[in-house]
């Protein structure tokens, strides 16, 4: 937790090259990255709508071994014997824990009984200077994604769901796009046939 403070603290001045790299990093994050994600989301949403309209997942879950992605992060849930309605309820419930804000600093006030909103996140901050903001901007996307994957796993595993490996492309097809459609689609997968890919253990 202290590493970035100490590291940035020692670098008191930025040279011209560092400043340009910083600005470039910021542009990549703020303009190019969201635009690419936006296009991907449109394609994903269209595919999800088509699959959900069928009433069952039409996504081919077979993946060549060379295309299987990091099993810590890219997996699909499945539970034998669960109905699509139960799976949808479980996924919808666990999705409430995916909202991600900056860590609370204590002491703090928590409106117990109300659902707190996420606080401004790290990437938007310049607390650590230009270099810190650029590094944060570049790394924050994957970091937040892996936190979300771990949160969902922590909520779904006790509900009896197993995990099966998949490719990053199929994971994106299932998890990006419209959140409601994504839950419906993943519920169809979770309640459908056992995926043909290896199970993630543990």
């Amino acid at each position: 937790m202290f590493g970035v403070h100490a590291w940035l603290g020692r670098r008191r001045r930025y040279n011209a090259k560092q400043c340009w790299l910083t600005l470039l990093g910021g542009w990549v994050y703020k303009l190019i990255f969201p635009a690419a994600l936006g296009l991907a989301a449109i394609d994903t949403a269209a595919a999800q709508n088509a699959a959900v309209a069928q009433g069952h997942s039409t996504i081919d879950l077979a993946v060549a071994e060379k295309d299987l992605a990091d099993p810590r992060k890219f997996f699909i849930f499945h539970k034998s014997g669960v109905s699509v309605q139960e799976a949808e309820a479980d996924l919808a419930f666990c999705s409430r824990f995916l909202a991600n804000g900056a860590q609370r600093t204590l002491p703090a006030f928590v409106p117990w009984g109300n659902r707190p909103a996420p606080q401004e996140n790290a990437a938007a901050s310049t607390q650590y200077g230009l270099m810190g903001a650029a590094i944060g901007a570049v790394i924050d996307g994957p970091l937040l994604r892996s936190r979300g994957q771990a949160r969902l796993f922590r909520c779904m595993a006790p509900r009896g769901y197993s995990r099966y490996r998949t490719s990053q492309a199929i994971w994106q097809q299932l998890n990006l796009g419209d959140p409601v459609q994504s839950v419906k689609l993943r519920a169809q997968v979770a309640s459908g046939p056992v995926p043909p890919t290896p199970q993630v253990l543990p």
Binding site: V4, T105, N121, S125, Q127, I135, G136, L143
Partner: peptide
Amino acid sequence: LSTLLALAAWPGPSTAKADA
């Protein structure tokens, strides 16, 4: 690597603390 490790626990921006 050290930067990535440090950022893994990056706390984010400071916020106004409530009054204890």
